[in-house]
Design a binder for these strands. Structure first.
Lengths: 143, 143
DNA sequence: TATAACTTTGTAATCACTACAAGATAGTTA
DNA sequence: TAACTATCTTGTAGTGATTACAAAGTTATA
């Protein structure tokens, strides 16, 4: 979880996307935390450091980064789209109903391979979302 | 896929929710098709038959039906919340990127049992969403 | 029948996200 | 380096799904 700007630029070049200052910051915000941030999260994190940053730029950049395959959208949240680093081994996600945090979980076995295994369907993406209470909140509830 | 109003009322009684005319219609709209409708779908389907029906009622009723466990929300769509009949055996969903239709799929084995199997996490819900191209659209694309 | 609890309805608001057009930036060619 | 072009960023003004709220209607129970 420690991508330097140099590495991020390299990744963007390879992905065929122009590495603007804003995009580097946004990609870093997604890659260098495991928070699965929303667009608004990213905007409020970066806004103090890039006062001219526009919300529209955050949305545009995230779209571009998704299209070139560096970032992935999570629809686990219902209210907001969340963003995740794409180049990692397949995994699933857990969202806590109390605190709203999203956790990476192991991908249940056999699932990552199941793309393409459904007769006649052309599956290009599998999302597994668990919901419930995270360990921290569980403890708080029982004390 | 053929629930009579009597059966729907019975289900609502058991679930502890008051079966108003509107709720029966809305529940029927979810149970008696496999379209996984959005709130707007339901509203435009029912509106001609219940001219006084309000969008707010659709939303309120769907919430109530979700809370009492008869209906389930699908977040597969990104833009809209979709609704599904809850009391069925666990299954997954596929959404077609072309036509937007949602299909029921088999639940990948082992997954339905995995609720609760993550150390420290209290999992109460598992959603598996596949995305890609459905057989119909695949055919149209190749001709 | 009276009372309380719950539902429906319509309007107004919220909030994430998108459309659009003008201005800024960077890469390319001469 | 200068000019040209393609691409990015920015701000404003939407859009569209969903929610908040309060008044009016309905149902359950005593």
């Amino acid at each position: 979880m420690n991508f330097t700007d140099i590495e991020l630029i390299e990744l963007m070049h390879k992905a065929g996307i122009r590495p603007s200052v804003q995009r580097i910051a946004i990609l870093s915000s997604v890659f260098n935390t495991r928070r699965h941030p929303s667009a608004e999260d990213i905007f409020s994190e970066l806004s103090p450091h890039y006062p001219s940053l526009s919300r529209t730029t955050v949305y545009n950049s995230l779209h571009a980064l998704c299209e070139c395959g560096l970032v992935r959208q999570l629809e686990i949240d219902g209210a907001n789209m969340r963003y995740d680093m794409a180049p990692q081994k397949p995994h699933s996600h857990f969202i806590c109903r109390r605190c709203g945090r999203i956790f990476d979980m192991a991908m249940p076995e056999g699932l990552s391979a199941s793309a393409g295994s459904y007769e006649g369907f052309c599956v290009d993406c599998v999302d597994v979302y668990f919901k419930g209470i995270c360990p921290d909140c569980k403890q708080k509830l029982t004390t």
